[in-house]
């Protein structure tokens, strides 16, 4: 299964119940990312223009774009996030710390974390 899961997704009733689990997890991970020193903002993991392209859909759902996406391919849980960092700490160090914090939170489950720094400075 390689369905992207979004924060706040309503979990469909699946046999495994994984969707519901991952939905809650994405929300937890958002908190984990935000609490890393130097992170000043978390942006929708999917770029805005893609969400706009799907505006017709969001008109119906009214959902805000997901800040962290999770994709579960059964072996690795892929986590994707885009962040802005301040200038008080080196940006690469903050990015590494974000990845480590996410990984630590998910233990013992193996994860592949993708962190993009899309803004440096206020």
């Amino acid at each position: 299964m390689t369905e992207p899961l979004e924060v706040g997704d309503i979990a469909p009733a699946t046999a495994s119940g994984t969707w519901a689990e991952l939905g809650g997890l994405a929300e937890q991970l958002l908190g984990v990312v935000q609490s890393v020193d130097g992170v000043i903002a978390v942006y929708p993991a999917q770029p805005l223009w893609q969400s706009i392209a799907g505006a017709a859909l969001s008109v119906v759902t009214g959902d805000a774009p997901a800040l962290i996406t999770l994709t579960d391919d059964d072996e690795l849980l892929a986590v994707k996030t885009r962040i802005a960092v301040g200038t008080s700490r080196p940006a690469p160090a903050v990015a590494r710390e974000v990845a480590e914090a996410v990984r630590r939170h998910l233990l013992p489950r193996p994860a592949a974390v993708d962190v993009s720094v899309v803004k440096v400075g206020a």
């Binding site: 940006a91 690469p92 990015a95 590494r96 990845a99 974390v113 993708d114 993009s116 899309v118 440096v120």
Partner: peptide, 30 residues
Amino acid sequence: LELRPGRSIPLQSGNPNDTLWETEGSISAL
């Protein structure tokens, strides 16, 4: 941020499964 992210600049990661990036746009803005 959205329209001109530019190239993705890789950063060293602490774990081989992780991929860390800075966007070119974030560096230009800096």
